[in-house]
Design a protein around this nucleic acid. Sequence first.
DNA 1: CGGCCCATTGACTATGGTCAATATAAGTGG
DNA 2: CCACTTATATTGACCATAGTCAATGGGCCG
Lengths: 248, 248
Amino acid sequence: MLKERELPPHHDCGSCPIRHRAVCARCDADELDLLEEIKYYRKFEAGQTVIWSGDRMEFVGSVVSGIASLTQTMEDGRTQMVGLLLPSDFVGRPGRANAAYDVVATTDLVMCCFRKSPFEDMMLRTPHIAQRLLEMTLDELDAAREWMLVLGRKTAREKIASLLSIFARRNATLTKQTQLNGPLVFDLPLTREAMADYLGLTLETVSRQISALKKDGVIVLEGKRHITVPDMSRLMEEAGDDADGGVY
Amino acid sequence: MLKERELPPHHDCGSCPIRHRAVCARCDADELDLLEEIKYYRKFEAGQTVIWSGDRMEFVGSVVSGIASLTQTMEDGRTQMVGLLLPSDFVGRPGRANAAYDVVATTDLVMCCFRKSPFEDMMLRTPHIAQRLLEMTLDELDAAREWMLVLGRKTAREKIASLLSIFARRNATLTKQTQLNGPLVFDLPLTREAMADYLGLTLETVSRQISALKKDGVIVLEGKRHITVPDMSRLMEEAGDDADGGVY
DNA sequence: CGGCCCATTGACTATGGTCAATATAAGTGG
DNA sequence: CCACTTATATTGACCATAGTCAATGGGCCG
C-alpha cells in the first residue's frame, strides 16, 4: 500500500473549515481547548485504507477534507459501500472497541483524529459533544434509510441519477450556489467501480447507464469525470424523486 | 381504517417489560418519575398506521409489545421498508417536527408515548436519556448498514435466509435460548408482502424462495407462518454470512 | 356456502450480470 | 520523446435472476 505522508501543521480549531458542522460544532472555547489536547491530524492518500474492519480502533475523528468510504465485504468478495464520508462527517463509534467496516480514502484525505479513550471520557462530561453526535448520527441514519430505498427499489438508471443528484446538490451547497435553476457542474469523486459498490450494481451497468443518460441529454460528460447537469429537475425526475417538492 | 381500542392501564415503569432495554434504560428512580408524568400508552391493531410520513409528530416513544414497520414510498407506489421496530425500539426523532416515514403496526402493538416537547426538554437536562438514545441510534445505524449489504448485494435466496436468521435469533434471545445448536422454532411476524417490502423483492419471489428453502430442507414450514430451523448454521450459510464467527 | 385475504405456482419477459474485446488516459523508464 | 505498462472506462454478445401477469389453492369468518 501507499505510505503515509508528512502530517499537516497542528492548526487551530478557530480556523478549521469544518468548525461549525463537525462533532465539535456546539463546543465553546473552553471545550475546544480540551479537544485540542487530544487531537491530531492524519493525512491519507487516495486508495489508502484508513481502518480495516475488525481492527482495534485507536481513534475516532472527523473528515476535514477529501472523501472516504465505508464498505462492507462478504467472504466471496462482494462488497457494498454503506456510507460516503464527506468533510465534517464523523468516523468511528464511541463505546465500541473494533471497527465494523473498512474505511478507505477515496480521494486524498485529511482527518482530525481524537484519541479514543480520552474522547469517550470527554463525551460523558461534555453534553455539547454528545448532543451534536446524536444529531449527526440521526442524520446518518436518515441517509442510510434513504439509501435503502435506492438499493431496494430503484432501477439502475434511477440509481445512477440518484447518485448524481447527491453529488450535484452537495457541490451546489459547497460552492454556495443557492440557485438550482442554472446548469450545475461538478467532478465525480468516485470511479465507476466505487459507484457500482455504492449502488449495488456492476461497473459495466454503471458505465452503460451513464452513457444512456448522456445520450438522452440528461447530463453532459467531458472526459470520464467532469459532468454538467443542464436541468437539475430533469435529473431528479430520472432519479424517481419528486422534482418539485422536498427542498432538502 | 381500524379504530383505536381501549387503552391499557397506566402502569408502573418498575414492572415494564422493556425497562432495561428502552430509551429509559439508564434512568434512575427520580428520572423515571419525571418520565411517568409525560408518558401515556397507546394501543394499535395490526394493519393500523401509527404515523403518516409528513405528519406533525405529537409524540415520540417506545414499542412495548408487538412489531411496527418503518416504510418509505415512492410516488408510483413502490415501497421499501427501512426498519423493523421491535419491543424496546424507539420511534420518532427528537428535534424534528414532521415524520419522515410511515410507521405501521405489523402486529397488534402497544406503545409507551412521551409528549414530544416535554421529552425534548427533558433530554437536555437528563444525560442518561440522551446517552441511551445515542447508543440505540448507533445500533440502528449499524442495522441499517447491514441491511444495505443485504439489499445491494445478496441474491433473493440469501435475502430470505438473512431475514429468517434475524427472526430466528431474535426469537432465541426472547425465549432465553442460549443454545443455537438445537432446532429453532418461531412464527413469521410478517406477511409475504411485508417480507418483500423489507427485502426489495416481489411477494412472488419471496414465496418461491421460501418454497425452495423448504424443499431443500433448510427450513420446515407448517401452515404459512410457523417455521422450524433444524440447523441454524446451515441457514446462516445460505444467508451468505459466516456460519461460525460473528457471535452477535 | 360464498367471499376475502393471503399464498403458491406457472409461463413468459426484462433487467441487469457475466465474460470478453477494445478504448483511453496517465504515468514510467529506456 | 516514444514505446510500454497499468488502471480506468466503454461496448457488445449472451445469459441468469428476478419481475410481471395470470390462474389456482387454502384458511377464516360472516
